[in-house]
Design a protein around this nucleic acid. Structure first.
Length: 201
DNA sequence: TAAACGATCTGCT
DNA sequence: GCAGATCGTTTAT
């Protein structure tokens, strides 16, 4: 069982992994391991099964479309920086990609819970495995990620990182329109593992 | 400083 | 499946 394998924190995805166009990073994050290290050392996380790319240029749906602001500044930090924002009174997490100065990121929308399921259930006030991390705000609540985590570096943080996971077969990877946006709705920048019951739709 | 708007979720049918 | 809650950020006055 995958959940019994203890993740090795010294084996993180590299800076170079994130230093590529957002769509590539979004696709390649599928299957990787998102891991939260709790205050008491508990490991909480799982396999990334759904992401969305927000591009550096010509993407009116991106928070960075009108340049840097106080809110989106983490998108303009070095690749691998966490960008947490509030929307509808909830939190969503992204990872900065591409180059520091262009403001692109990948939204992590859903994971398959593998480690710390008890802790996630408690944080969510919900025992149904399929309703623990099935959307960006649910995911943040399950992992205890808040606006206070905005700007942390996934390559050096002791609290949150991404490790290499299992490879996903190309035939299992699907792309489609991003969810919940009103502009650039036609671009196929949402990527997901088509067979996973943990993707948001 | 006021108003509008979401990269959403939950509860109820 | 859908209507309604929700509140920080942005943009306009």
């Amino acid at each position: 069982m995958a959940g019994t394998i203890v993740p090795q924190l010294n084996n993180r995805l590299s800076r170079g992994f994130y230093t590529r166009p957002a769509a590539e990073v979004a696709r390649d994050l599928l299957g990787q391991t998102l891991l939260r290290v709790a205050e008491n050392g508990d490991l909480i996380g799982g396999k990334i099964v759904e992401t969305e790319a927000y591009l550096a240029e010509h993407d009116p749906a991106s928070h960075s479309a009108n340049g840097p602001t106080r809110r989106n500044r983490s998108m303009f930090q070095q690749p691998g920086t966490l960008y947490v924002y509030t929307i509808h009174a909830k939190y969503c997490m992204n990872v900065s990609t591409d180059r520091s100065d262009v403001g692109s990121a990948v939204l992590i929308r859903a994971i398959e819970p593998l480690w710390g399921i008890e802790q996630m259930a408690q944080a969510r006030g919900q025992s149904d495995l399929r309703r623990l991390t099935r959307g960006p705000a649910m995911l943040c609540q399950a992992l205890g990620i808040t606006i206070a985590d905005d700007g942390i570096d996934l390559l050096t943080s002791n609290k949150l990182t991404i490790l290499p996971g299992e490879a996903i077969a190309a035939s299992e990877i699907a792309a489609g329109p991003r969810i919940g946006i009103s502009r650039a709705t036609e671009l196929p920048l949402r990527f997901y593992v088509s067979s996973s019951p943990f993707k948001s739709r």
